[in-house]
């Protein structure tokens, strides 16, 4: 079991087919790449008979796959919970079916009522798949300045977080600068994009994997992040840089490695933390003064 879970692609497949136990799957997206394609991947992988409830803040169009469609416009969180309840597994039901509740966005629910809202609808037989648009700014009133932001809360609560990023040749900083001015470069919001899947285990360990997803062909490719190779100091590095000799010989290197640095000595607690006081000849020591000598 452990070995299959360690295979990133298997873990991704299990996540998309909702075989990994998760009550909240959070997709975070930006203007550069929408999470809509990721939601389609879930729908492509889950069993057909799974009941899907779609809660919409953004569109009046009922998706074809949705068994129930709830228009959240103009509803308070309490009204929304009331509208959702009849379509969720009831407590008296024996062996209820797994339900999927899709929220097109959580951005319209204030951070102060978000946790309560999610905990009201979450249950062992409900998986919530929700998107949070990270590029939508939120005004934080003075009384909530020290309260976590909605995205911080969601990333903390969610068992699975899928961060969607575009596959683009544009430098990340340039792209951010453009989007902050509402300049939208071409070829964003493509069916080919990257996701970073963070899967939180029951043990508390979180596994992070990056994939390249093609939503047209449904191909998933595990991406191994290139790490900057740590280069050891080699004599060639200094050649031709200066007229000075910056190289170190083998003998010098050995001597350098053998130097004991002062902080290493401080880390050995052989003396047990005792303060060693050595009386010196100029010290004025009075036996009768109780405050004179603290030792």
């Amino acid at each position: 079991m452990a070995s299959t879970n360690n295979n990133p692609k298997v873990l991704l497949k299990r996540t998309f087919s909702l075989k990994e136990q998760s009550s909240l799957i959070l997709c975070t997206d930006t203007m550069a790449q929408s999470s809509r394609f990721v939601v389609e991947e879930f729908l492509d992988n889950i069993p057909d008979e799974m009941p899907i409830v779609f809660v919409s803040f953004e569109t009046p169009n009922r998706p074809k796959y949705a068994r129930q469609f709830i228009d959240a416009s103009g509803k308070t969180t309490q009204q929304l919970v009331a509208a959702l309840q009849p379509y969720l597994p009831q407590p008296q039901e024996q062996a209820p079916k797994m339900h999927l509740v899709i929220f097109d966005t959580f951005n319209y629910i204030g951070s102060e009522s978000l946790t309560q809202f999610i905990s009201t609808i979450a249950s062992p037989f409900v998986t919530i798949l929700a998107t949070y648009h990270q590029s939508i700014p939120a005004w934080r009133p003075a009384e909530l300045q020290n309260y976590p932001t909605a995205i911080q809360l969601l990333q903390f609560i969610a068992n699975t977080v899928i961060e969607v990023t575009p596959k683009t040749s544009i430098d990340e900083d340039d792209l951010d600068a453009d989007l902050s001015r509402f300049v939208i470069p071409k070829n964003l919001n493509n069916p080919t994009y990257y996701i970073t899947l963070t899967n939180k285990r029951k043990s508390g360990r979180a596994i992070k994997n990056k994939f390249l997803i093609n939503s047209k062909t449904h191909d998933y490719e595990y991406v191994i992040e290139k790490q900057e190779p740590v280069t050891d100091e080699s004599p060639e590095m200094f050649e031709g840089l200066t007229t000075f000799n910056l190289n170190t010989s083998e003998k010098q290197k050995l001597a350098k490695d053998q130097v004991e640095l002062p902080y290493l000595e401080a880390q050995s607690f052989n003396s047990g933390g005792a303060i060693v006081y050595e009386f010196e000849k100029d010290d004025d020591y009075d036996e009768e003064d109780p405050y004179e000598d603290p030792f």
Binding site: T59, S135, I136, P137, W139
Partner: peptide, 17 residues
């Protein structure tokens, strides 16, 4: 300021829709 955040929020929300 609050007003600017709300204006930017409105347009960005429109973008996502």
């Amino acid at each position: 300021g609050k007003d600017t955040v709300e204006f930017v929020r409105f347009t960005t929300s429109c973008f996502h829709k």
